[in-house]
Design a protein around this nucleic acid. Structure first.
Lengths: 228, 228
DNA sequence: CGTGTTATTGAAGTGTATCAAATTGCGTGG
DNA sequence: CCACGCAATTTGATACACTTCAATAACACG
């Protein structure tokens, strides 16, 4: 199980500035402060599983958490990834449905859990908070729509190039496994390995053991067919 | 170009009851009534194109409209489909980004265009309208996430079975072309045709010319691996 | 220092896309 | 109402990208 630690204050939280919720001030911030639960997760541990009822949201203080969708045959798709300042499961605030995906810490992570009703009360009080959620949701939606199209219309090398870029640009310090890259790109570990070898041969990247360095970012972008 | 017609009243609109927006009453409804533009589109005509700036939303009065994403090589993906009561482009209310997809009438359709600021004023006035949008967006998001996973982890026959069911259950009276089924399922027209022939051989469906009848709905569901 | 995950390589099979060409069916205009 | 034209459908042949399975090597972790 995840370990609970002594409550820190939102005021002192390093990722507060990036977070939609915790950028609140004064009285409002204190409400969250009082209601939240602070937890730590080791790599591979799960915040929640698909099918679990959703009763609150998770704000990431540090680390990286991935949302995985599993099918019956062991295939896993990484639907989304969040790091410090990110907010997980907020869609559940507005629907009664259980989680669609499982949340797994991809590296040691600190997380604050905030109960649903705390947020809902806040939204009642501050209607412009709803607008912030709308903006966030709209952006996430757009990204999901883009991925749907890319995954269904691009061959594996394009998707892998895109995955490399996306994962590196958004999570600079993290080293992703080939399995994770595959699960993000919607392909297999073996195909990722073979494609990375190809990219290395072309001088686009360099592999030192498990570490991947991007050498020609611009060429890789072209390869990923990212124009938008 | 689409033809504009004489303004009807929202009060008299047949699809009002199903629509998030038009289920408003009294004064609020009248605001929309005054601001809206009523248009008609023939099959294949476009409401807007990907890349166009978004300045309002479209409410479908009758007919069917599909959102298509195109890549550079002529491949098309149907991202979403809406019929009477549906609302298109509402995500644009909350972001400044241009449309990601093009909206095409899939059969003769009546549409009401409502300018962005009319909606935004209403949300200011009625904060719970924001909540309705949040709910709608959350549901659409969930569906998109589900599709992403399905498209990347299921082989073509599963996806086609799923497409058949989805398109039939949600748009009963409409006959979809094999091309449209392919564009929804993320495959090619030829594969759809061959797979339909297979389904027919198995007695799951029946094809009379361009019309597809579903004979064994439950078996088709199993085939589509829909459990959730 | 073992043990399990991650990475790598090879061989084989196949699902699907692609291309091409013929046919059917539908809507439109004469 | 019929004929024309175009789009939708169909079928076949071919190619190959990718998955799958299997077995080994390298690495991280307790």
């Amino acid at each position: 199980m995840a370990s609970e630690s002594i409550k820190g204050k939102c005021e002192d939280c390093g990722s507060r500035s990036q977070s939609l919720l915790c950028s609140l001030k004064g009285e409002d911030l204190r409400l969250i402060d009082d209601a939240k639960f602070h937890q730590q997760f080791k790599t591979g541990q799960s915040l929640f599983y698909a099918g679990n009822p959703a009763s609150g949201i998770y704000c990431i203080v540090s680390g990286t958490v991935k949302l995985e969708i599993h099918d019956g045959e062991g295939k896993t798709q990484i639907a989304q990834v969040y790091s410090a300042g990110g907010m997980i499961g907020y869609r559940a605030l507005f629907t009664e449905e259980p989680y669609l995906s499982s949340a797994i810490a991809s590296e040691p992570s600190e997380v604050c859990y905030i109960p649903k009703n705390t947020i809902m009360d806040l939204i009642q009080k501050k209607p412009d908070l709803a607008m912030k959620f709308l903006i966030q949701l709209s952006e996430d939606f757009r990204m999901m729509e883009t991925r749907l199209h890319r995954i269904s219309s691009n061959p594996a090398p394009e998707r892998i190039a895109e995955a490399l870029l996306f994962l590196r640009e958004n999570f600079e310090d993290k080293n992703w496994t080939r399995k994770e890259i595959a699960e993000w790109a919607g392909t297999t570990t073996e195909t990722v390995i073979r494609t990375l070898a190809q990219f290395e041969e072309e001088g686009l990247i360099e592999q030192k053991g498990r570490i991947i360095s991007i050498l020609k970012r611009d060429v890789l972008f072209k390869r990923a067919k990212i124009s938008i």
